[in-house]
Structures are given as C-alpha cells and as structure tokens.
Design a protein around this nucleic acid. Structure first.
Lengths: 270, 270
DNA sequence: GTGCACCCTCCCCCCGGGGGAGACACCAAG
DNA sequence: CTTGGTGTCTCCCCCGGGGGGAGGGTGCAC
C-alpha cells in the first residue's frame, strides 16, 4: 500500500470527474486545498483521501449550492450540523420547484388563445384602522414572511374578525425589496408583538377578483393594469390584496377568491 | 377609453413587475421593443398591449429559458409551434430535476458516516470483438445518446447475446465531452446503421460492482479510484462499465448491478 | 421658471464556469 | 545529458442575466 502517493491535478481530475480548471478554482476559493503545493513551481498535489471531499463538493454544486455555502458545509465538523445545512438547501430547492410550478401554471394561462374578459370595478375605499404587521422584505422572502406575519396576526386578533388583506409596495417588484403590510380589520386594534394599529389611507381602487391559486396572479395583475391604462388612469401607491376565500377557508384552490385593488388617479388625456 | 396612452418605462415597470433595468436590457436584446422611442431623448414609451408580452417573458425567465429562446418563442406566430418550444423547455427542466434527484441520492451516500468497504478485483481482460455504437458526445447529452445507441444495438444484434457494456472516455468528465462506445458481445458482429464491429484492446482492469440505480455511481467511481491509488496503480484509458443487471432485466433498482472497470498500470513506488 | 422625480448611457461588479496565450516543469527516450 | 511532448502554471477575456452607482439630460406640476 502507498496511502500517501501524491496525485497531480490531472490525475486527481480523472479520479473525481472535476475539471482541472474547476479544481484550481476550488483551490483559490479555499474550498479544496491540495495536500501540498510546490513552492517553487506552484504545482498542486492532492492526496487520495481528498477524493470523497471532492465528490461531496461536486454533488453540492450539482444542487446549485453556492461555493461559500459549500465551504460552510465542509467546515462544519458535526455531521448533524452538516445534515441541517444540506436540508436547508433542499428546502430552498423545494421552494424553487414551487416557483417553477407557479410559472408553468401562469404561462399556460397567458398562452391560452381566448382570455376571459376581466370584470373591473372602480371603488372608493374610506380610511380604515386595522391590526397590522409590517416590514421591509426582500422579494424571495415574501412567502415565508407572509406565513409568519399572518400566523402572528391570527394569534393576536383571532381569525373571525373580518377579511384579512395586505398592502404590497411597488418597489418590491421594481427594486426587489419593499414594504409589506398584512392586516385584519379590528375595532380596537391591540398592540402586541409585531401586531399594532395602522390607519390605512382612503384611496380610489381599481378592483378585480383573482380566482384560484396564486401561481398565475401576476397575469391578473397585468390584465388589471391594462384596464387601468385603457381607462386613462395611473397607478399610485401600494397594491392592496384582500383574501376573500383562501387556504384557511377551503382546501379547494379553485374556490379561492383574492381581490386585487390598485390605487389609481385620473390622468389627463393625450 | 385611451387605448394608445403611452407608458413611460417606470409606469410599465409597475404594471409588469419587471424592473426598469431589466426592461432596458430586454430592449437592447430585441426581446421587447418599446412601442416608440424618442429619438432626441432616448426615452422609451410602451403601449398597454405590450403588458401580456412582458408577462410571458417574465414567466419564461422564471423557468430559466435563455433570452434567445424566449425570443424564438415570441417570434413564432403559430400557437402550436410556440407550445412545442415551451414543452421542449419543460422537458429540459424535467431532466434537470432528475439530475437533482440523483445528486441528492449520491450526497446521502457520501455523507453516510460508515461507508461500506469496497470489494475490488484486479482482472486481466483479453482482446474482444463486439458489436458497438460509438460517437463523440457532450456531457449533458450522455443519457439521451445512451438510450438511442443501446436501442439500436438491441434492434440489430438482439438482446440475448451476452452482457452489454460501455466505454467512457475520461475527457468526457475533464473537458465536458468525449468519446463514448456501447457494445454487445457478438461472434460475428454485423455492420448496420451505426452498429459496427469493434475490437476492444486487452487491458488490466480494477473492477468493482456498483449496486442500485446510477444516481450515486460517481461515489463508487471515487472509491474505486481511491483503491487504485492506494494500490500504487494509475489509470489508463477509458472507463469500462458492464451492465450485469439493469432496467431491462428487472424493474427493481435495488437489484441492479453495474460492473465498473478502470484500466490501470503499475507505477513506481515513491 | 424652478424643483424634483424621472429617464438616459456607461462602466464595474456578482456568480461559476470555459477558452486560450505564453511560459515553465516533469519525465522518458535517445 | 539533451530533447521533445505533455502536463501545469498564471493571467486575461468571455458567457448569461442581472444589480449598483455615477454623471447628466427631461417632463411636468406648481
């Protein structure tokens, strides 16, 4: 046995199915340091027991784990912590899969030859005081934030106090992060944890209703937007959503009803 | 109604949930040309009926469709052709999902605390003449090529003529594409279509058997590689796989047996 | 006519790789 | 010991699909 036979980078590449270039990059990134490096020539030499490590990196990269996260996983000595980090990533992949499914649903609706006509109503909404949770949130954390905020809201004000809703800052879509607010109507909104009273300003809303799950809600947004423009209106302020019928009311997605209201004002005709 | 009210890029951004920067990029790429561009100022103005197009692009991008492909889809006027292109992409996503699943399987095995010891055998293989299909193939097309080549081979020489196998060029993993060859033993190999006789050279093989589906076969490769190195051998020439028990023999992946043989030669001890 | 939000172009950065140039290093054969 | 082929080094540029920010011109409402 020659357990410490050293391997040049090319040989190591053949054994691990990682390209030479990639191995060099991993060295530079501090991900996979060669067992020894010749000071004079710069030649990298690997040991046979680095093969499993290289393979773990390979697999993690196939799962699109970013290099810094790969490093974190490799550096964590405890197998439990390691497994937790990996599980974290698998969860992220799962979320991405949900996003993909939603995009497919939405695309199907967009490419349908005959879109159903949209019923839009112009509605003046008076000032309202509600129990709310609000925060600045990044685009890809919206779903998680929403779940947490709505759960806290339910816990504080109960879930029999009228139809819940949310306000979504336009900057969320334009800059990738923006101000979010979810609320429930309440006569005397309490102040507990993140829940506190907020007075929503009076607005003129262009309102339509989205039917079904939220995978293709952007299509409804677009149709509403087209209607708004066609009627010589312009958008002003955050979008309002009202969850008339949602997952908490019935398990059947086809029965879900979400009201979308876009604050508008009249613009001069051209 | 003002159906031709023009929209500045910011307003269009709010209506489509695409960032201003991204809209500009799509203009530059010829993906989504503004309805009019002011020659003097360079200001982009969009029409309301461009909203659906923008949304289709948004969805396709969420599915990671490359911009040139998005363009191709948008330009194809026939809804049927368009649906076919989209379906093509969904197939690609499905393949990627398979790859992800394989990586998860493999990772689980890699992170298992106690790896099972590997039984490796050194075997001298004589020169053999076989019926083969061979080609230079890119890494991400291997599975598709394999399926086609093996089907053609079965059709020409029948599937009762001994255990099939394959040779996989190391360059496939190092450079991303390399020479592939699949074969079946045959006394008088015919020459029909892509099938033709090939004489495989005699080699010394380090052989082990991979059990189960191929998702984690790279782990076995790595273990075999480590064994080869530990025994003062070096790899030479393409890897040989032999499909002792495969999907064509039984539907139970746990029963599959794949022999992996790495051509080796003895190196001087250090 | 003035202020301010909007819009323009341009350049650099991110990630994780690949291509290729030009210069050394290794090793076996002659 | 030289020579040649192959392996390896570093360095820079490229890809795709975006984001950040600088510096300067515009549209429009007051």
């Amino acid at each position: 046995m020659h357990p410490d036979r050293v391997l040049a980078i090319g040989e190591f590449s053949r054994l691990t199915h990682l390209s030479v270039r990639t191995l060099r990059r991993y060295h530079d990134a501090g991900l996979l340091e060669p067992a020894t490096v010749d000071d004079a020539t710069g030649y990298r030499y690997y040991a046979a027991d680095q093969i499993p490590t290289a393979q773990v990196i390979h697999r993690l990269r196939e799962l699109d784990v970013p290099l810094p996260d790969v490093q974190r996983i490799l550096r964590s000595p405890d197998p439990g912590a390691r497994a937790a980090l990996v599980a974290d990533h698998l969860r992220r992949l799962e979320q991405e899969l949900d996003r993909t499914r939603a995009a497919v649903t939405s695309l199907r609706r967009l490419l349908r030859p005959e879109p159903a006509p949209l019923a839009v109503e112009l509605r003046a909404v008076p000032e309202t005081t509600v129990a709310a949770v609000e925060d600045d949130v990044a685009h890809d954390e919206v779903l998680a934030w929403y779940a947490g905020a709505m759960a806290e809201l339910d816990a504080v004000v109960g879930d029999g106090t009228g139809v819940p809703g949310g306000l979504y800052d336009n900057a969320l879509f334009e800059q990738g992060c923006g101000h979010l607010l979810v609320y429930r109507p309440a006569d005397a909104p309490p102040r507990r944890g993140r829940v506190h009273p907020v007075t929503l300003p009076a607005v003129e809303l262009a309102v339509t209703t989205h039917v079904g799950e939220h995978g293709d809600i952007d299509v409804t947004y677009g149709e509403l937007g087209a209607w708004v423009v066609a009627n010589a209106l312009a958008v002003a302020g955050p979008v309002r959503e009202t969850y008339l019928v949602g997952p908490r009311d019935t398990a059947d997605p086809l029965a879900w009803r979400t009201e979308i209201g876009w604050p508008v004002f009249r613009v001069a005709a051209r």
